[in-house]
Design a binder for these strands. Structure first.
Length: 403
RNA sequence: GGUGGGGUACCGAAGUGGCCAACCGGGGCAGACUGUAAAUCUGCUGACUUACGUCUUCGGAGGUUCGAAUCCUUCCCCCACCA
């Protein structure tokens, strides 16, 4: 099949990585792969929970895609084993035991999402229950004999929690071992993960060695910081850009990131070439370019990736109209009324506010307007005499038609 | 099994009988400003009510009290240490 030269591959693969351990081994493996014309087996494990992928997840998935494009074999491993067992000690009840069917359903959902990035034909999807479930007690004991408590406690996370009196379940302790065994079962050459996964991935190396295999190369990717600028992107924190978000939302959310995040988002979430990345960082540092322009470029890139260029242009136009020029968007939800309606009731009924209390507060704060005029009276009635535009905050609109 | 600590709003975290719808920080929302939904500043952030105010909240259930997130009883859950 023929792989590109090793140097070329490394150039692509090293971009945006947090750590590659040990660095030299990746080159060595690539070299051997090149010489023997054998693809590397590259794996990444994912939770079997219902996925709702955001661009934070795509950082490593995009890396998988790069391996794939270079001709290597990508294994998208669904960690359904622990899901089937369930974690009784979990502090949050979310970790309930899943059935085979749950997992199947989630796997399907995964496919729909990851195939927005990965090639459906080339991607191998596997489940670790395939080999973990049939293991007998003896096999498990053998596996557990290959690692020590002291080594597990080396992990910052564990030792901190242990010291601070936070719980560590035995399952969590065993988790890295099973995850490591996955690499044995798949004969993985490379395993990817978020930088918080470094420890687990490294255990995989040890386990492979214990089972007589050449250890995998561990590649960690930075955790993308969410739109708030402080925490890592996560669904529960609401600071994410979902890969199925509509174009305007994707664009807008990206525009709301703090300026400092611009370089890392470019590096991790777009295909902008490496040379341009350094240019962008330099421009930001020298303040020679308006950060807003860089950010709108970023937002366009991202929208284009998950929708298309036209959507990106439209989203940008929308943003300019609504946010910058504080004008009206082309499209907005409509409500039809036949008689005057109390403003607060109207806002609540159409979901522009979550409670009447919120509506009152927003009116007090001067956030509500009709046809460009601020509504200051909580008792204001929206007349049923033609068309009116009600606006709440910067980007909540409702067109009122009477009839 | 024993001893001690703990469960507070979206998250973190104060509060240990009335001044508590509950300090503060983060997040979120809004206003001002602006080259951006950046930054900065200010305000808001349980529900209902035009308003006065009313109602529901501090793990669950009871109780004491004029009055409880705060005291008592009991139950559930979490953690550490000792065994």
């Amino acid at each position: 099949m023929g792989f590109p030269p090793v140097e070329e591959q490394l150039e692509i693969l090293m971009r945006g990585c947090d750590q590659v351990v040990p660095e030299g081994e990746l080159a060595a493996k690539l070299q051997r792969s090149f010489e023997t014309d054998t693809p590397l087996i590259v794996k990444e494990g994912f939770d079997p929970t219902a996925p709702d992928l955001h661009i934070g997840h795509t950082v490593s998935i995009r890396k998988l895609k790069q391996f794939q494009d270079l001709g290597h074999t990508v294994v998208f491993l669904i960690g359904d084993f622990t899901g089937l067992i369930g974690d009784p000690s979990g502090q949050n009840e979310q970790r309930k035991r899943m059935t085979r069917e749950d997992i199947e359903v989630n796997a399907e959902t995964y496919k729909n999402q990851i195939f927005k990035i990965l090639d459906p034909v080339k991607t191998v999807i596997d489940f670790n229950s395939r080999w973990s479930l049939p293991m007998g007690s003896e096999d498990v004991l053998e596996l557990t004999s290959k690692y020590t408590v002291a080594r597990l406690l080396e992990r910052d996370d564990f030792s901190n929690r242990y010291r601070n009196g936070q719980p560590i379940s035995i399952l969590e302790f065993l988790y890295p071992l099973f995850q490591g065994y996955d690499s044995v079962a798949l004969k993985a050459d490379v395993e990817l993960g978020g930088s918080d996964q470094l420890f687990n991935l490294l255990v995989g190396r040890e386990i492979q060695r214990e089972y007589g295999q050449e250890p995998q190369v561990v590649m960690t990717l930075p955790l993308l910081v969410g739109t708030g600028g402080t925490d890592k992107m996560s669904k529960s924190l609401g600071n994410y850009v979902g890969i199925f978000d509509p174009p305007e939302e994707m664009y807008g959310k990206t525009m709301s990131i703090p300026d400092e995040l611009i370089p890392s988002w470019f590096e991790l979430c777009t295909d902008v070439p490496n040379e341009e990345l350094s240019l962008i960082s330099r421009q930001l540092e020298e303040k020679s370019v308006n950060p807003r322009d860089l950010k709108s470029r970023l937002a366009r890139e991202i929208v284009t990736l998950y929708h298309d260029a036209d959507s990106a242009t439209a989203a940008e136009a929308h943003f300019r109209t609504v946010i910058v020029e504080k004008d009206l968007p082309d499209e907005m939800p409509e409500a039809s009324i036949s008689e005057p309606v109390w403003i607060i009731e109207l806002l609540e009924a159409h979901g522009l506010v979550s409670s009447r209390g919120e509506a009152r507060r927003l009116i007090d704060q001067g956030a509500v307007s009709m046809d460009g005029n601020r509504v200051t009276d909580q008792m204001f009635q929206v007349p049923a005499d033609g068309e009116h535009i009600v606006k709440v905050g910067k980007r909540r609109f409702l067109k009122i038609v009477s009839g």
